[in-house]
Amino acid sequence: MNQVNNHKIIKICMYSITSVVLIGCGGGGGSSSTGTATSQSSNTSVISGTVPGTLIEAFCKDGSYYKTNSTDNGTNNHPFELEIPNDLDCKLVMTTNEDDLDITKRIVTPLKLSDGVTSSTYFQLSENSDIGYIGLPLFGQGIQPLISISTAGTKLKINSFSYDPLDLDNDGIPNGYEDDDNDGEYNKDDDDDDNDGIKDSLDDDHKDDTDGDGIKNENDKDDDNDEKKDEDDDDDDNDGIKDIDDNSDTSTGTSVTLPSSYTQNDGRLLGSQCSQCHGTNGNSVNSWDSIAGEDDLLDEIHDDDPIMSAQAKGYTNTEINLIGSWLNTLQSNED
């Protein structure tokens, strides 16, 4: 990754405000401190920018899903980078207050992008692109009016669609963020979207689209939107039952190499205690993080959400270092 401290590429921070006043946007000229990032492969690119402090989600037309959090760098402009496949139409939704335990207090803003000719919630990447500072509302609750961003100066391709499977009512809000039954739970969190008493996974109206994004499972590259593509996911519908056993899916399980001798390994024994929550050998089967290959356990383990830091207090630094050394030797399923 290029460490470009002074910045930047293109001043994208002239955004055209078409729908809403941006509170707290503190002036453009965003101090995006990341410069041009390098993506992992030639098939993906990184979209970057800066935001007040935000969860950034991408919902893509093939049903896949990506997300990242912006990095708190101590300023009001937190950089983010999200790697997504090239030439794939995706929508962005940004959430501030994303850690608020009360979902209704989160401030959710879908983005609209315009290249001066076409305006759409979809964009396609062909190269790393920076969209500058996005002044998201910091007050209010729930779904906000769309914020429109100009992509002038970038090579983002903006396609507009009359039929949008990810937003069936064409109101700019992706299906997952609708609340069909008005029960205060977004469809993507609600396991009975239409409140008919039948859980979505059993409901004929919903069970063929597990994550409710609008793309049917048979076409959806990530049935449960847990960021693991189905071809890599042992539990496509995130119900805790491996696909191989799960009536609703028939993908195959993974194989394992058994050792031919026993080797004493204190770090492995201590570290096996992490598997109850992070999966066997540190490979999670859902959206909790995998820890295989972790190389900075001592910082990470104390830094995470309440239940992890409560657990972490039960281990000495010596133990954590032993565990970390072992984790470092493991192959992650997220590589």
Binding site: D234, D235, N238, K242, G279, T280, S284, W288
Partner: peptide, 13 residues
């Protein structure tokens, strides 16, 4: 469900 999913998987698979 993340907790139970990984626990089930670590135990039975």
């Amino acid at each position: 469900f993340n907790w139970s999913g990984n626990l089930f998987s670590d135990t039975f698979y």
